[in-house]
């Protein structure tokens, strides 16, 4: 992989500008989230981002992806394989680095999430482009649900513990509006109040470091509201994530690499199953 010569903060800001350029060209509504898109009060306490994150209006996703496809940005992981939630695709530029293009944000489950966030947006200059970012309460909620999934006590401190009671009330209200209460509860250590929720086990796997892939798989299956979706999760779980392996390896996988990945997939599954029953 060629070495990028731009400083990281420059690359990330330019990535936001590049994504906004493509959004403007394609007529797509785009929200810029996290990293330099955060309000300065929230950003100042966080380390610099290593990539850019954008959230596309679901109805505009196809046109935006088509615009991306016509550039030097290359697809690294697809929506279906990028994460357990299938929420984002990752693109790479030799000049700018990585961007995560989100079609949804795990934890914000209301179907009109984008519209709600869009309604309270304001512009921020990133790389010379006016980029729409969510309101500060939404920014805090996004940090919190992300912390619930990826582990981030610092973000809980920034987004919640440092918020006054009025802002916390606004965060809770927005979480209710965006069907994000279980994710918020998980971030705040209150997950047990959602024991009966179908997504309880899934959010519990993120909170529990001892959770295995089986736990996560079972959580994802239980969380999905539809039978076909549950079946799809099980089927995809049988296949190694070659895209991630390729990214980690830094080179295209050979036939032997893929064969090994298959073997390792089932060896690991067997080990975890045995461990659960020991």
């Amino acid at each position: 992989m060629p070495e990028l010569s731009l400083p990281l903060p420059v690359r990330v800001r330019m990535t936001h500008a590049a994504m906004q350029f493509l959004a403007d060209e394609s007529g797509a509504d785009l929200l810029h989230i996290k990293g330099p898109a955060l309000d300065p009060e929230l950003a100042a306490q966080r380390p610099p981002s290593s990539d850019a994150d954008v959230l596309v209006r679901p109805a505009h996703l196809r046109r935006f992806i088509r615009a991306l496809a016509g550039t030097e940005w290359s697809l690294r992981t697809r929506f279906a394989t990028g994460s357990a939630f299938e929420h984002a695709a990752t693109y790479w530029s030799e000049v700018f680095g990585y961007v995560d293009v989100h079609r949804s944000f795990p934890g914000l489950e209301a179907p009109d999430t984008f519209e709600v966030l869009w309604a309270d947006r304001h512009p921020v200059d990133l790389g010379g482009y006016a980029c729409a970012v969510p309101g500060q309460t939404a920014q805090r909620l996004i940090l919190l649900v992300h912390a619930a999934r990826s582990g981030g006590s610092r973000d809980v401190g920034i987004a919640w513990e440092q918020a006054d009671s009025a802002e916390r009330a606004r965060i809770r209200q927005l979480a209710e509006r965006l069907d994000a209460e279980i994710a918020l509860a998980s971030a705040l250590g209150d997950l047990e109040q959602f024991r009966e929720h179908r997504a309880y086990r899934l959010w519990r796997t993120f909170a529990d470091p001892s959770s295995t892939r089986w736990d996560e798989l079972r959580g994802r299956v239980e969380a999905h509201p539809h039978l076909l979706g549950k079946a799809g999760i099980l089927v995809r779980a049988l296949v190694p994530n070659f895209e991630h392996l390729q990214m980690a390896a830094g080179h295209r996988l050979s036939r032997r690499d893929r064969a090994y990945a298959w073997q390792e997939r089932y060896r690991r599954a067997w080990r975890e199953l045995r461990h659960r029953h020991d």
């Binding site: 731009l6 400083p7 590049a18 350029f21 530029s93 030799e94 000049v95």
Partner: peptide, 22 residues
């Protein structure tokens, strides 16, 4: 042409959009 313009630590960088160079 379309470009991004970023100042950082006293340095100025410009890049053609959407995919460089910079």
């Amino acid at each position: 042409r379309a470009y991004a313009d970023v100042e950082h630590d006293g340095d100025r960088f410009v890049a053609r959009l959407p995919d460089g160079p910079a």
